[in-house]
Simulated scan of single mutants.
Amino acid sequence: SMLPGILALALHTGAIVAHLTGRFSESLTLRADAPTGLNRYAWEVLPRVTPNLLAFLLYRWEVIMRETAVLGILGIHTLGFYIDSSVAEFRFDRTLLLILATVMLNLAVDALSRGLRKRLRLKPGLGL
Rank of each mutant, 00 (worst) to 15 (best):
S1T: 15
M2N: 12
L3W: 13
P4Q: 03
P4C: 06
P4D: 06
G5F: 13
I6D: 00
L7S: 07
L9F: 06
A10T: 11
H12Y: 13
A15V: 14
I16V: 15
V17Q: 06
V17C: 09
V17A: 05
A18G: 10
H19A: 12
L20E: 13
T21G: 13
G22Y: 09
G22C: 08
G22K: 09
R23W: 08
F24R: 12
S25C: 15
S25P: 08
S27H: 14
L28Y: 07
T29F: 08
R31T: 10
A34L: 05
P35D: 04
P35I: 08
T36H: 10
G37F: 04
N39D: 13
N39L: 14
R40G: 09
R40A: 12
A42C: 09
A42E: 08
E44F: 02
E44H: 03
V45T: 11
V45W: 10
L46D: 01
P47E: 03
R48A: 14
R48H: 15
V49E: 10
T50M: 15
T50N: 04
T50A: 13
L53T: 12
L53Y: 03
A55I: 01
A55L: 01
F56Y: 15
F56T: 02
L57H: 07
W61P: 00
V63W: 13
I64S: 12
M65F: 00
M65C: 15
E67P: 00
E67F: 14
T68W: 01
A69L: 10
V70M: 10
L71C: 00
G72T: 01
I73M: 05
I73P: 00
I73H: 00
L74A: 12
G75T: 08
G75M: 05
I76T: 07
I76H: 07
I76R: 03
L79T: 12
L79Y: 03
G80Q: 02
G80S: 11
S85N: 10
S85D: 10
A88S: 08
A88V: 05
A88Q: 13
E89Y: 12
R91Y: 05
F92T: 08
F92I: 06
F92Y: 15
T95P: 04
L96M: 09
L96P: 03
L96Y: 11
L96K: 02
A101S: 13
A101P: 04
T102S: 13
V103C: 06
V103M: 09
V103E: 00
A108Q: 06
V109R: 07
D110H: 14
L112Q: 03
L112W: 12
L112I: 10
L112F: 14
S113R: 05
S113D: 01
R114F: 11
R114W: 09
G115F: 15
K118I: 03
K118R: 14
R119L: 04
R121Q: 07
L122Q: 01
L122A: 01
K123N: 08
P124Y: 03
G125A: 06
G125L: 04
L126Y: 07
L126Q: 01
L126D: 01
